[in-house]
Design a protein around this nucleic acid. Structure first.
Lengths: 191, 191
DNA sequence: CCATAGTGTAAGTAAGCACTTACATATAAA
DNA sequence: TTTATATGTAAGTGCTTACTTACACTATGG
């Protein structure tokens, strides 16, 4: 791993745990296993380390790779797979998400942009996919958007509640059990 | 308003916008319209100002006041009223919620505690209420918990997405329209 | 052998921070 | 009038921070 990468990795870990202001260049250097001067020689300032971190650690969800696997599944199983895949992704990117939340006001544009990209990518892929399901063929575009948001909020709400706030680990099989029930309710209604 | 209150209010505003480390005692004093020394005479340290802020600005949702109004409504309208009431509350407490999110790692116990209290209060009131609805009499306790969480995540997810991340204002009538559809799907199913 | 690029150590700088001290002022109760 | 209480101003202390400068070391390629 190059010196630059070591620095970015260390900075990422610290920023996500302690926030931007709670992280010192000294600690970044220490965690990266380099001297503080080296850090400034590579990046010039703490600010530009942060920018590099946001750029390199932000992410787009890649539902596209998942779609082939879903062709022959029922609507319920499909949604369950999508939810599982996404919660895994969220867990992997926990650090980045924490940074986004605590630095929203420091870098409003970047955070907003990144969030919008992420959501749009997710929404579009999911909507396109839902359109192709015969069970949902009678729904309007508008309705599908609402259904998509519903599913997304269920995943995101659970993630924030459990991982970010309670800081518990997610047990994937428990998550699937829970989510499976929620989807049941959504598909069949609670009435 | 007493000097103490002025200080706590100013600190609250700044903490929620800039975070704990991003807020200086100088700025708190300035915003409160008092001198910095006065601030230390009252609280002794920045830390204890923060503690006062968390204590005085944290909140429990009070669904209880709402319940009488809900007696004669349909399940759907009931849930819609509850959601509306809660999103209003969340908006009012936006600042406190922002502080919770950005200071989770600084004060894990307090934030966790506060969050758990809030969620439990909400869950319990809502579950008790749902139990009383005849439409839901055939559901188990476990199912009702899941339904409760589903509703809560829909509200919370929307709030975070719109208010915290996008920093948009919530148009209550739009929210109700959206949420009404989501509840329709939940009650009647999407199949 | 020499030049270059990347690194380390040590020391320091200027600024900002939480917090303190000393002293003056105002108000209101005794 | 005196006294206690709450405030303000001004100055300063000690610490930490991001960032700099100067110099020495090592490895690699020509």
């Amino acid at each position: 791993m190059s010196t630059k990468e070591k620095i970015v990795d260390a900075a990422f870990g610290l920023f996500s745990q302690k926030g931007y202001l709670g992280t010192t260049t000294k600690k970044i250097a220490l965690h990266a296993g380099v001297s503080e001067v080296t850090l400034f020689r590579h990046f010039g300032s703490k600010e530009s380390i942060f920018e590099e971190v946001i750029q390199s650690k932000s992410f787009l969800p890649d539902l596209k790779n998942l779609i082939p696997k879903l062709e022959n599944l029922s609507l319920k199983d499909t949604l369950l797979e999508i939810a599982t895949e996404n919660i895994k992704k969220l867990i992997m990117k926990k650090g980045a998400i924490k940074i986004f939340f605590s630095e929203v006001d420091r870098y409003p544009q970047k955070v907003k942009e990144s969030h919008n990209n992420m959501c749009n990518a997710l929404d579009n892929t999911l909507i396109t996919f839902l359109k192709s399901k015969k069970e949902l063929s009678n729904f309007s575009e508008e309705d599908l958007i609402i259904i998509t948001k519903t599913i997304w909020y269920l995943i995101f709400g659970y993630f924030l509640d459990t991982v970010i706030i309670k800081n518990d680990d997610i047990n994937l099989s428990n998550f699937r059990k829970m989510f499976s029930k929620k989807i049941d309710f959504l598909i069949n209604g609670i009435k």
